[in-house]
Design a binder for these strands. Structure first.
Lengths: 127, 127
DNA sequence: CTTGACCTTCTAGTTACTGGAAGGCTCAAA
DNA sequence: TTTGAGCCTTCCAGTAACTAGAAGGTCAAG
């Protein structure tokens, strides 16, 4: 398979796949013409990476997850720990965003939104 | 005021204040010795920026907001539009994060988290 | 033999800072 | 008067995870 095929089948842009090779997440073989030559297991790994990234895991977390995935003697506790840490980060981000949303939506609701200059949003920011 | 004073009073690191000058958000005067020399209005603007950033507005949004703030003939509708757009982005981010959290916490709950290799989290990612 | 769709590498840009190096200024103590 | 601490300055590089674009090689079809 060439990069275009795995891009389509994994849902990852070709650029991203090349980047993942650059940083050592995958190691596809090369054909005689220099093209990357992917086998099924490369595709499988890329799909794994795509899903882990979609769940918000960082690239370094993904590297660890792939390592655990390929380690037949892993302890599921290690995977769970990583996932729980990530879950806590997600929760923290959600809290931050909700705090922002609450403050901002209060200000927005107070704003007439007409052609006059008086604006509670700006007043709130300037306070 | 020197940069250390405004840093303390605005809550922004000195590095960040220098950066804001670099990108043209503020234009403090200089003393004879080359030190930046801040007046109250600079401090006020920095505090405004700090609050806008804390609400998640991008630097470019902040630039626009400062412009509106300083424009006595602004229409509050312009401010409100900007804020509402930002609110929608925040809501979208929260939705994304909640989707991640839901999927991930389901997987986490299914995982024994012991020393055995069998792991529903990895299976979920590999599917 | 050319055309178009692939593929390659390389450089640089994105966001909003942050860390660190190398060096100048200021003020108080010895 | 010198010295030292603690400010300040600029400039360069690094962060995360790509993404855009340029310049050029390869391949299959017509």
């Amino acid at each position: 398979m060439n990069i275009g095929d795995v891009a389509e089948r994994s849902g990852l842009p070709a650029k991203t796949i090349r980047y993942y090779e650059d940083i050592g997440l995958i190691r596809p073989h090369r054909s005689a013409n220099g093209y990357r030559c992917f086998v099924e297991s490369d595709l499988h790994k890329l799909a794994f990476l795509a899903r882990a990234r979609a769940l918000g895991f960082s690239i370094e977390d993904c590297r660890t997850l792939v390592g655990l995935y390929e380690d037949e003697s892993r302890a599921s506790a290690d995977v769970k720990d990583l996932a729980q840490q990530h879950l806590r980060k997600i929760d923290a981000k959600i809290s931050d965003l909700e705090a922002m949303r609450n403050t901002l939506s209060e200000l927005v609701e107070c704003c007439a939104g007409d052609d006059r200059p008086d604006c509670p949003i700006l007043r709130g920011l300037a306070t």
